[in-house]
């Protein structure tokens, strides 16, 4: 494993030797001693195939899964059981836009609930702020008061992003956020994530099976295989000269739009 990360950059999130084990006989070690650093405003791509443990890692970071090892947020430990204030530091966007919103709540209600529970705005400003966030996420204002059933997949994912942003997190973990979307919509959502990262200084952990998505959005990429990070490098370097055999296999398998290499 190599790591070309500039050590000088301020780490907003650092995980050391993180493991996630699921009960059962025998127990399954989904994540095996993973260490990662994420600098403020950085976009790190976590790539791997299904079952490699990338989603378990994401869930552990968001406090949804108990894990061994350390998660450090701005230099302080972030435990599995979090206070409300600690919980909002890491927010997630999920893969399936059709399951990620409460079917009985409108877009505005979905976002407003976060603001209200965390008391991030005075009561009378909550609705206004919710609309502002939805606007920031690019949801047309005409559909801000509709329920998810009336929204397209892309629009739902925008609401989910606005909900995550409402808590003003330091780290946004996006678990396959565009996998369920059409290509033309995927591009728009990737643009939005890149834009938010730039304007809000958000650190982005983008989890995907699609190396091309990582190539478009991320500065650095970590390749995960069987619960371990097998290679970590800046994206151009990783694409140009993959070191680990698994990374090479993965890259060779990606179908390309253009004449086959060689």
């Amino acid at each position: 494993m190599r790591d070309t990360t500039a050590r000088s950059a301020e780490a907003v999130l650092e995980i050391r030797d993180l493991s996630v084990t699921y009960g059962g006989r025998p127990p399954v070690r989904a994540v095996r001693g993973v260490s990662l650093r994420l600098a403020r405003g950085e976009a790190l791509g976590l790539v791997g195939e299904s079952g490699c443990g990338k989603s378990s890692l994401a869930r552990a970071l968001a406090g949804l899964e108990p894990a061994e090892g350390q998660v450090m947020m701005n230099g302080r430990p972030l435990p599995h059981r979090r206070t409300r204030e600690q919980a909002r530091r890491v927010q997630m966007v999920f893969q399936d836009p059709y399951a990620s919103l409460n079917p009985r709540m409108t877009a505005v209600q979905t976002v407003a609930e976060m603001l209200r529970v965390h008391r991030l705005r005075p009561k009378d400003q909550i609705a206004e702020r919710a609309r502002e966030l939805l606007d920031l996420a690019g949801l047309p204002s005409q559909v801000a008061d509709t329920r998810p059933a009336a929204l397209s997949g892309g629009q739902r994912q925008r609401v989910a992003i606005a909900r995550a942003l409402a808590l003003e997190p330091d780290v946004l973990v996006a678990d396959e956020p565009t996998t369920a979307l059409d290509v033309s919509v995927q591009a728009v959502i990737l643009e939005l994530l890149a834009h938010l990262r730039e304007t809000l200084g958000l650190a982005l952990l983008l989890i995907t099976h699609n190396l091309a998505v990582v190539s478009a959005v991320c500065d650095r990429a970590a390749v995960m295989h069987s619960g371990e990070i097998v290679e970590q490098a800046a994206v151009p370097a990783l694409l140009a000269s993959p070191q680990h055999p698994y990374t090479r296999r993965l890259l060779a398998a990606v179908p390309r739009l253009g004449p086959p290499p060689g």
């Binding site: 949804l64 206070t83 919980a87």
Partner: peptide, 8 residues
């Protein structure tokens, strides 16, 4: 999951 991650 999102509600849990938000500390609700």
């Amino acid at each position: 999951q999102a509600a849990r991650a938000a500390g609700l």
